[in-house]
């Protein structure tokens, strides 16, 4: 038996919004540690990894590890039936083929129960090593979303150059060129507005904007985004979900011809 309860459906709705354009089907792995999901997009260019820790739930019961194979589009549609303030319970039997989603209004006067058919999915899992990165940038997530969107008007790729104290995001295309320079904040009252740039060694890498724009669908989950970059390894774009977990996206740099 698996059963968990979150006080607000909003966070799970936003999590589904962050995933559904990138992946069509995925497996939620349920264990005593919480819920986790890992999946490549259909073209195997990027990888997304989600962790929702047990401690962030109101209640969490998992008698034995189970894998819930879901169609992301279906799950997102059902999640949309919940109001943001509803509390939400997810429930499944150990060998069941259904996931129950129960939404309860804050005043307890309305309870909605949906049952979603589960799928038997065999999804390749990859081991993601912990590693140190040459540079880590933290910035307002809305600002990163804006930069990716704006540079998409110019070209298909963004070149990210990180040096001490700042970052250049630049794009080239048939119509012209663009460069956006973001400087590290010197003094910030509100932490979520801050830009911080940690540089062990400067980097200069190029990434596909198409995928970065998919990743920024997670913007409503967190005021800040972190970009971890090293030469010749995938970029990590991470959104922390307060008190609950994170959504992390991985994208390999484009290579020179």
């Amino acid at each position: 038996m698996f059963e968990c309860r979150l006080p607000k459906a909003e966070v799970l709705k936003k999590t589904m919004d962050a995933l559904k354009d990138l992946i069509k089907e995925a497996v939620w792995d349920v264990s005593a540690q919480g819920l986790s999901l890992q999946s490549m997009d259909s073209s195997h260019v990027s990888l997304v990894q989600v962790t929702l820790r047990t401690e962030g739930f109101d209640t969490f019961r998992c008698d034995k590890n189970i894998a819930l194979g879901v169609n992301m589009d279906t799950m997102q549609k059902l999640m949309k039936c919940a109001s943001n303030d509803d509390n939400i319970t997810l429930k499944s039997e150990d060998n069941g083929d259904l996931l129950s989603l129960i939404f309860e209004s804050p005043n307890g006067e309305k309870t909605s129960e949906y049952e979603m058919k589960l799928m038997d999915l065999d999804i390749e899992q990859l081991g993601i090593p912990d590693q140190e990165y040459s540079c880590t940038i933290k910035m307002p997530s809305g600002e990163f979303q804006r930069i990716c969107r704006d540079l998409s008007n110019i070209g298909e790729s963004v070149n990210i150059t990180v040096v001490k104290g700042g970052v250049d995001f630049s794009a080239k295309g048939d119509i012209g060129n663009a460069k956006i320079h973001v400087t590290e904040s010197s003094n910030v009252d509100n932490e979520k507005d801050a830009v911080t740039v940690e540089v062990n060694e400067p980097v200069n890498l190029t990434f596909a904007l198409r995928y970065l724009n998919f990743f920024t669908k997670a913007t409503p989950l967190s005021g800040q985004v972190s970009l971890s970059i090293s030469p010749d390894v995938p970029l990590v774009v991470a959104y922390e979900i307060e008190d609950l977990g994170h959504v992390k996206y991985f994208l390999a740099p484009k290579i020179e011809n």
Binding site: A208, A252, I255
Partner: peptide
């Protein structure tokens, strides 16, 4: 510029 697959960077488990 060519785009490498993400699976070439991580070990299969």
């Amino acid at each position: 510029m060519p785009q490498p697959s993400i699976s070439s960077f991580f070990m299969k488990t």
